[in-house]
């Protein structure tokens, strides 16, 4: 309540929530920067084990890229008040998001069966599980938020015409997408 009234009172260029999200993204970037630089430092130590990235992660890359496109289109439809199409596209994004996490999970079990485990001497695999696992958690967080948004678009008591929540969701979703691309490239180069 307060947020919206204050936002109207003060004529802002950038909505506070969107700005907050950008700062949060900076924070998340710092976390992954910390982890990937730890990886680089560690890869020069003795006993380092490399790994091969299973093919399935290419599938998840395509899936998350597609979901970025669908949420972009969903935002367009929301702005044009085409609610049916908006819901359909948001739903598609949700399914793709879930598919991404499933793909990741399949990838992990494939790695696990290739004997890339937690225990024992350090290596790319241990980092891979932690870093991409954390990324998957961030995707899952976005998924939950999006699911709530999706349900609200059906059962919401109040009708909202503000595109801000959808925009915020979109920015976050594109971010986890780009983050995944970065991680994928990072592991392809270094592992």
């Amino acid at each position: 309540m307060i947020v919206t009234t204050v936002a109207q009172e003060q004529n802002n260029k950038l909505h506070p929530l969107k700005f907050t999200l950008w700062v949060a993204i900076a924070s998340i970037i710092m976390m992954f920067a910390g982890l990937t630089s730890a990886y680089i430092v560690k890869s020069n130590f003795s006993g380092w084990r490399t790994m091969a990235i299973p093919k399935i992660f290419w599938v998840s890359t395509v899936v998350i890229l597609l979901s970025s496109i669908t949420i972009y289109l969903a935002l367009q439809k929301f702005r044009n008040r085409e609610m049916q199409k908006y819901r359909a596209l948001l739903g598609t994004t949700l399914v793709l998001g879930l598919l991404f996490i499933v793909c990741q999970f399949i990838g992990y079990s494939e790695l696990w069966s290739q004997n890339v485990r937690f225990k024992g001497s350090s290596g790319a695999g241990q980092f891979f599980y932690v870093i991409t696992g954390l990324h998957a958690l961030h995707v899952l967080g976005g998924f939950v938020a999006m699911a709530i948004m999706f349900l609200r678009s059906f059962f919401g008591k109040t009708k909202s015409y503000s595109a801000v929540p959808v925009e915020v969701m979109g920015i976050y979703w594109h971010f986890v997408d780009i983050l995944w691309i970065y991680l994928m490239v990072f592991f392809l180069i270094t592992a």
């Binding site: 710092m30 976390m31 910390g34 982890l35 937690f118 954390l134």
Partner: peptide, 16 residues
């Protein structure tokens, strides 16, 4: 906002 996430990543690795 810039420094705490790095501690978090350090602690996650420690937990593992």
């Amino acid at each position: 906002a810039l420094a705490f996430p790095v501690l978090l990543s350090g602690l996650i690795l420690l937990l593992f």
